[in-house]
């Protein structure tokens, strides 16, 4: 991993790839209005790997949906490369927690989907899909259907489906939450490698603090309902990192301390919800 870039280089290679200013999002629910996000200010630099952690229900997924352009803020603005986000763009792709792979298509057809919609010629689609599938080590599964794959393989198909579009920004919503520890470990390595090779900007949402510290240049901790930014950690641990590294555990602990308060709040609220229901 001699090509591994230094953090300094990454942080100063571009300014404000993604800028969020006063972003809020509220929903109307049966129980009344719900403020999911409130006044989020965040700058993500080009080529940065940023992880967002927070208790479940803090609006992490909502935040990603907003940046992806699949949802609209109730207040505030989101900019990428100096353009206001008005809708989805294939330059800024979201990988869903539930993946959303299409079961009626083969692995290769799933990967080609975005290219075909963009009007790329069939032959080129096939070649690019093939290349990306090899990149995520799924070369032999082009013609398989999704139900024939394991969870980790599906995860890699979802990754390939986005990577093939060569987006500058990759938004990942708890992509590895449903996987076993070994598979997750492997995918961490692969993701880190791909990130280094492509120089993409990655916003990675997770509730797993160790995962966040393992992957991120920066870890953002969010508060519980309404979701605000509580604090941020610059992770300066050298790459490639491993989960077993004691230094990583130490950093993770200080992040976890911040997060715990919010988790307690979340638990209390959920408990109250249950008793009043």
């Amino acid at each position: 991993m001699a090509t591994m870039r230094k953090l300094e280089e990454v942080l100063h290679s571009g300014e404000g790839k993604i800028r969020l200013r006063g972003v809020s999002r509220s929903f109307v629910t049966a129980q009344g209005p719900l403020q999911a996000l409130e006044g989020i200010d965040l700058d993500v630099h080009a080529g940065e790997f940023i992880c967002i952690v927070g208790p479940s229900g803090c609006g992490k997924s909502t935040l990603l949906n907003l940046v992806a352009g699949l949802d609209r803020c109730t207040a505030g603005e989101i900019w990428t490369d100096g353009h206001r986000v008005e809708g989805p763009s294939s330059n800024r792709l979201l990988i869903f927690q539930e993946l959303g792979l299409f079961p009626w298509l083969t692995v290769r057809e799933n990967v080609e989907f975005g290219l075909r919609r963009r009007g790329v010629l069939r032959q080129e689609c096939v070649e690019r899909a093939r290349r990306v599938l090899r990149l995520v080590h799924l070369g032999g599964f082009e013609n398989s259907y999704l139900h024939q794959l394991s969870g980790g393989m599906k995860q890699r198909v979802a990754l390939a489906r986005s990577l093939v579009m060569e987006p500058e920004v990759l938004l990942m919503d708890e992509p590895f939450a449903a996987l076993d520890a070994q598979t997750r470990d492997l995918l961490h390595q692969e993701l880190e490698r791909l990130w280094v090779e492509t120089g993409q900007t990655i916003v990675f949402v997770t509730h797993n603090v160790r995962e966040a510290v393992r992957l991120g240049d920066r870890v953002v901790v969010m508060t519980f309902r309404p979701g605000r930014i509580k604090c941020q950690f610059e992770i300066t641990l050298p790459r490639p990192r491993t989960l077993e590294d004691p230094a990583l555990t130490l950093v993770a602990r200080s992040v976890l301390d911040q997060l715990k308060e919010e988790i307690n709040k979340a638990v209390k609220t959920e408990f109250r919800d249950e008793t009043t229901a």
Partner: peptide, 20 residues
Amino acid sequence: IYLMAGRNLGARGLGLIVHV
């Protein structure tokens, strides 16, 4: 989720109906 994924990957209007 299929609709979201389709839109995310650039399917719009008629394309979204026919392909998703």
